[in-house]
């Protein structure tokens, strides 16, 4: 039995889930390289949305032309976070101190603090209001996909996510930077001995992860049209949950878990009042962890 309303909700859920996945990939990349969590990642997503808003309103650019600006903003934010919240704790570059518990917890807290500061600063600048992308710039044209009604924005989210995921695989598997990132995440000491500059790789990781996060913010703001300084918080928490359910270090795991969360939320919205769907991701998280204490997809040897 095919119910187009149910299918529609699930499809919307899946596209929302893909944005969680895009944000989660940034987390996962950084975790693989540094064994640390970047809690300020959600603010990069928010900045991506604001950059889009500035591009289409102040600069009166068409939505697609916002892409370079968003990339630049994401890049700057990622490098800035690395410099301010992570670099100061990386005085030594041997593996023990890079991945030590003290450094992990210090960077977790410092990035959490930086995230709060960033969010509140944006709150001051934009006065905590919901801002809207002008209707004519939004990707809200309805699309009929075999009886399932979606908006162009939702399709754009799905499309962009797939393009970025493929691009990321290409970057990791086919380029020198990708090779170095993989080398550092699988064997830090070995990578150092083969002459890889750890700081450069960490910066590259932050750059790639943050660009993905900012682009996710852009496409979501174009699809749904409203932007607020705390919008990153909800998404970042769910992306974080996706990363953990996915097993912390697995990119495919994070993507699958992100989509799973999105679909579960979509499905839940069919049965319960929308206010309660906020809980779905976390209930899923806690049940997953009870049965799979280290997440669903654990990379071997990690």
């Amino acid at each position: 039995m095919f119910d187009s309303f149910v299918a529609g909700q699930l499809a919307i859920g899946a596209s929302v889930g893909l944005t969680y996945a895009l944000v989660a990939i940034g987390f996962t990349l950084i975790y693989r390289v540094l064994s640390a969590v970047n809690f300020a990642h959600g603010e990069v997503y928010t900045l991506g949305a604001f950059a889009t808003l500035v591009a289409v309103t102040t600069l009166k650019a068409p939505p697609l032309a916002a892409v370079p600006l968003v990339i630049v903003v994401g890049l700057a934010a990622g490098l800035g976070i690395e410099r301010v919240a992570f670099r100061p704790f990386r005085r030594f570059t041997d593996e023990a101190s890079l991945k030590s518990r003290a450094v992990r917890e210090a960077t977790l807290l410092s990035s959490l603090a930086l995230g709060i500061v960033g969010r509140e600063a944006m709150d001051q600048v934009w006065h905590g209001q919901w801002l809207a992308i002008p209707q004519d710039k939004m990707l809200n044209q309805p699309v009929n996909l075999g009886g399932v009604m979606l908006s162009a924005g939702e399709l754009a989210i799905a499309g962009l996510s797939l393009v970025l995921l493929v691009g990321l695989q290409w970057l990791l598997l086919r380029t020198r930077v990708g090779l170095e990132i993989r080398a550092v995440s699988s064997n830090l000491v070995g990578a150092q001995f083969s002459g890889i500059d750890i700081n450069r790789v960490v910066l590259a990781t932050f750059a790639v992860g943050s660009i993905l996060g900012a682009l996710a913010g852009m496409v979501v703001s174009l699809a749904y049209g409203s932007i607020q300084s705390s919008m990153g918080l909800t998404v970042v928490l769910k992306a974080f949950v996706a990363m953990v359910i996915g097993g912390l270090t697995s990119i495919p795991g994070a993507v699958v878990a992100g989509v799973l969360i999105g679909v579960a939320e979509g499905a839940a919205s069919l049965w319960v009042a929308s206010a309660w769907t906020e809980m779905v991701a976390y209930v899923l998280l806690i049940f997953t962890l009870i049965f799979f204490p280290r997440g669903l997809f654990r990379r071997r040897g990690a």
Partner: peptide, 22 residues
């Protein structure tokens, strides 16, 4: 929950906080 390794525990408790608020 207390069986979970450090970062998993932290995330699970974060989830609890959100479930409680909701």
């Amino acid at each position: 929950l207390v069986r979970l390794a450090s970062i998993f525990f932290a995330v699970a408790t974060m989830g609890l906080a959100t479930i409680f608020h909701t």
